[in-house]
């Protein structure tokens, strides 16, 4: 599906734009989450084959001929893990944001300049 690959690329670009231009830390984390969704869409669209169905064997799929009628299940298995790890990374970033807020009382990224030189 070429259309979905283009859509994922546009989502990655929008997320990168948000991460680079926004000042608020929460908005940067939201941009990261949008970028995550774009990467997942591209990875699932790699495994899609035209006019085929989901790789779950039930009454709708012929068991003997299943190789020729189902899509590739490996990329969707990879993405399944990546979604859960994405949630963990988002929660870790949010906990750091709360700690930074308790330290300085603001979420503006320009205020944190201990490591600037």
């Amino acid at each position: 599906m070429t259309l979905i690959t283009i859509l994922g690329l546009v989502l990655i670009m929008i997320g990168l734009w948000g991460m680079l231009t926004q000042k608020n830390i929460i908005k940067i984390i939201i941009g990261f989450s949008i970028m995550d969704t774009g990467v997942h869409l591209i990875m699932v669209s790699i495994g899609y084959l035209k006019d085929r169905t989901a790789p779950i064997i039930d009454s709708a799929v012929d068991q003997a001929n299943a190789v020729n009628t189902v899509v590739d299940p490996i990329p969707s298995a990879l993405v399944l893990t990546a979604i859960v790890i994405g949630l963990a990374v988002t929660a870790l970033m949010l906990s750091y944001a709360i700690k930074l807020y308790e330290k300085k009382g603001t979420l503006d990224i320009n205020e944190f300049k201990e490591l600037k030189w």
Partner: peptide, 11 residues
């Protein structure tokens, strides 16, 4: 639409 119902459920 991409025929990945397990990913759709998790998402």
């Amino acid at each position: 639409v991409l025929a990945a119902p397990d990913v759709a459920m998790t998402e």
